[in-house]
Amino acid sequence: MAAYLLHLAILAGIYIILAVSLNLIIGYAGQVSLGHAAFYGIGAYASALAALHWHFPFPLAALGAMLVTGGCGLALGLPTLRLKEDYLAIVTLGFGVIVDLVFLNLEVTGGPDGLVGIPSPRLLGLSFRPQPLYLLLVILAVFLVLGFTYLLVRSYHGRALRAIRDHETTAQVMGINTPAYKIVIFSLAAALAGLAGSLYAHYITFINPESFGLHTSILILCMVVLGGMGSIIGSVLGAIALAVLPEMLRQFQAYQDLIYGALLVALLIWRPEGLLGRGKLSLKFLTRG
């Protein structure tokens, strides 16, 4: 039972990084991205391959994964972020599907079987294979990500991003370089998703394309929407809730999707801004610094 709780906690930590990073794109910059799991997957595969083929130590593999996913985010963002937001949604959706297919069909990614035997992190002779230690590692990563995100959104950059979300044209008229902001934040969020992927790969030690498909993108999106767009704490709570909720609903597994759907519909009717959406509890006490 303890092992199971630790497992849930580790997954929740990884989800937190995913949700918070997606929230930067959706909740702060106001761009709709439906392919976040693709970056998560690219990070997982990149990190696993770096460790398996080149025997990169974990920190380097994780850093490499972030660089690769950040680069992918840049490559995808440069041509598409000039478009209006609904096009970005379609492009990222397509990107997610393509990346999934690539994982499934490339030899180097192991096709449908995926990659096995990904080494557990080892730092200073200490193996992080035991769950409690891995949880510490994840918690450290979560705190780094939260700290960075907090500093970002409360700086004038955060204000510029929210201006873009509220009124892109006007933001540009005010002197905000909107294309640069959108591209940088998209790429940054992709890099953070890559970090989550790396943490996942070296924890599970076995990855296949199934974990990084469209349903995962939707799951991450649900975490952001549930917690509230533009609220960091909201994303944390949303991620924890959607990591734990399926477990609590396990005995009703047949009805799981139904309950899920009903919860989301209820949320959208009564609290469309999410549990901690902007303007309510949200970040006020954070941004006042």
Binding site: Y156, R159, A160, R162, A163, R165, D166, H167, T169, T170, A171, M174, G175, I176, G230, R278, G279
Partner: peptide
């Protein structure tokens, strides 16, 4: 065309962006 999700003060601060 104000930034609706922000406070009055934050709206003005947005105009300050170029002066950072």
């Amino acid at each position: 065309q104000l930034f609706g999700g922000m406070t009055v003060g934050e709206n003005v601060l947005t105009g300050h962006h170029l002066r950072e």
